[in-house]
């Protein structure tokens, strides 16, 4: 249970970090270390080089840009948890982050690290999909932005080159008074969720759903935006029957199958988690 031999690099600037990644073969980026370190200890990964972003200036911040909250990739999960701005503008993220690991891991773990690790059951990954986040990626060819929906290309594989770094996440805020709900099912608090659901609802003056976002985490290789269920709900008056119907759509997905959790169980949980997330979100809607 000891990390393998590697060379360690601790750049002080983003430019230095990008240039190292362009130059070094078989390098891994170390952000908060809460996924990479266990993988090193268990020797699931054997990098020749580790590039630690811990001393790079200017990658940790939470800013309000009016329509969105902009978060630096090296922002610690604890700082997201305790941010009044996140609580006010992104209550879905504020709720979901409480299920991310434990206090000891949130103190170190970063949002950028979690998104690039791209575990399909990770709360921040599910929330980024639910909020239609935009990612800023920096590399030797300059900066580019990408909608989060284009980021996952396969199981735990982000759409990012080995010489590029995720530097910023832009999370659009929903209007004041929107409903939100994040629920997950795990065997123990802080464990990886077997299934999770993130729901956002906006209700218009006549009491009908004007906008809906429903995302499942942990059930497929990447978070699943349930557009069919979203379309079903928009224009309808929210009630138990509607949420049950939305849940039933979620119960028909192609779910992952593994040695511990059969696909049929994930589908059942997907239906229940999505209904619960929607009921929770509806209960939090403040009518205009």
């Amino acid at each position: 249970m000891k990390p393998p031999v590697f060379s360690y690099h601790d750049p002080r600037s983003l430019a230095e970090a990008v240039s190292l990644l362009g130059r070094l073969e078989n390098a891994k980026v170390l952000a908060g270390g809460q996924s990479l370190m266990p993988m090193l200890n268990m020797r699931y990964v054997l990098p020749d080089h580790v590039v630690d972003l811990g001393r790079v200036e200017g990658l940790a911040y939470i800013r309000d840009d009016g329509e969105a909250v902009v978060v630096g990739a090296m922002t610690r999960q604890r700082d997201i948890e305790f941010s009044p701005l996140v609580k006010e503008k992104l209550p879905l993220l504020a709720e979901a982050i409480l299920s991310t690991g434990h206090r000891q891991t949130r103190n170190r773990g970063t949002i950028g690290g979690s998104l690039c690790h791209l575990d399909p059951s990770a709360e921040q990954v599910t929330v980024a999909a639910a909020l239609d986040a935009t990612l800023t990626i920096e590399g030797p060819r300059g900066r580019r932005t990408m909608p989060f929906a284009e980021f996952p290309v396969a199981f735990m594989t982000p759409n990012i080159e080995p010489d590029e770094l995720l530097v910023e996440i832009r999370l659009p805020a929903w209007p004041k008074g929107h409903g939100y709900g994040f629920v997950e099912f795990a065997r123990r608090h802080g464990d990886f969720a077997i299934a999770s659901a993130a729901a956002l609802l906006q209700v218009d003056g006549s009491g009908k759903i004007a906008r809906a976002s429903l995302t499942l985490g942990g059930v497929d290789t990447a978070p699943l935006r349930m557009t069919e269920a979203e379309e079903l709900m928009v224009g309808q008056v929210p009630d138990e029957g509607l949420f049950r119907a939305a849940g039933e759509i979620c119960g028909r997905i192609e779910a992952m199958d593994d040695a511990l959790v059969p696909a049929s169980y994930r589908r059942k949980l997907a239906a229940v988690m999505s209904r619960r997330a929607l009921v929770l979100a509806q209960g939090r809607v403040e009518r205009p």
Partner: peptide, 13 residues
Amino acid sequence: GRTARSCLTLAVQ
């Protein structure tokens, strides 16, 4: 001042 798992932190950090 913040808790951390010392097995998930490198000494150099």
